[in-house]
């Protein structure tokens, strides 16, 4: 069994300690392949139980992950051999005390997180160059500026102006929705659909809107109309 979970500081992959290593890696790769775009750029923590791994095993996995733009950051194991191998490769081996490596200033700062899994609640403005990856729903209290990106497995709610790029339902869920007080994204993606804002800058009245997929395309409707429709 291979399990992939979203954590506050990246992905957590748990591998069975009994099953064949090569088979598990193949399964992991297959799972990552399904949602390539979603996992790209992620940082990964690997949990292998008591399985003893040598340096070349880890290096091989690192290379495979690197091809998908995923960084192996931490290896957690009960096996001393595995931990020693991971330390030789300058990987973290302790999940609790794990701190992101001394960041280059160019790295994005992960905004504060309330819940580890489930919804991610972000209480700040996302600025150009900042990128949020989350397996489930994302709520932002603040603006999402042009150049910022949110990639979420679930719905995205922005209590503010949404001007950046948002991908809701990024694992292939076409029923996901995106809501914003001012919905003017550079590009909006829901599941497998992509829409972009009209080129010409029309000065419309700003009002809360909700975007969803309807009849094969992304449609944004004012929140009021949406409510009325439900009555």
């Amino acid at each position: 069994m291979v399990s992939i979970k979203g954590r506050q500081d990246g992905l957590l992959v748990v591998l069975d300690e009994e099953q064949d290593w090569a088979a598990q890696i193949a399964e992991l790769e297959a799972q990552l392949e399904i949602q390539k775009a979603f996992f790209a750029g992620a940082r990964l923590t690997l949990q292998v139980g008591g399985r003893p791994l040598v340096m070349s095993d880890i290096q091989d996995l690192q290379a495979r992950l690197a091809q998908r733009d995923i960084t192996l950051e931490t290896v957690v194991s009960d096996s001393e051999a595995t931990l020693a191998a991971a330390r030789h490769l300058n990987l973290a081996t302790d999940m609790a005390s794990h701190q992101p490596p001394a960041k280059a200033a160019a790295d994005l700062q992960e905004p504060p997180v309330v819940s580890e899994e489930g919804s991610w609640f972000i209480h700040c403005t996302l600025r150009s160059g900042q990128k949020i990856h989350h397996l489930s729903h994302v709520t932002v209290i603040g603006d999402v500026n042009p150049g910022a990106e949110i990639i979420a497995g679930g719905d995205v709610v922005v209590w503010g102006r949404l001007q950046g790029l948002v991908h809701a339902g990024a694992m292939g869920d076409d029923s996901a929705v995106v809501c914003a007080l001012d919905l003017s994204p550079t590009q909006l993606r829901i599941g497998s659909y992509i829409a972009r804002s009209p080129e010409e800058k029309r000065r419309r009245k700003v009002r809360p809107e909700m975007a969803s997929v309807s009849e094969g395309r992304i449609v944004a409707e004012p929140w009021d109309d949406k409510k009325r429709g439900k009555k």
Binding site: K103, A105, A106, D107, L108, Q109, L126, R127, S128, G129, Q130, N145, P146, G147
Partner: peptide, 11 residues
């Protein structure tokens, strides 16, 4: 670019 810089400075 200014927006990006502000984000980095806050970080």
């Amino acid at each position: 670019d200014a927006d990006r810089i502000i984000g980095l400075i806050e970080a």
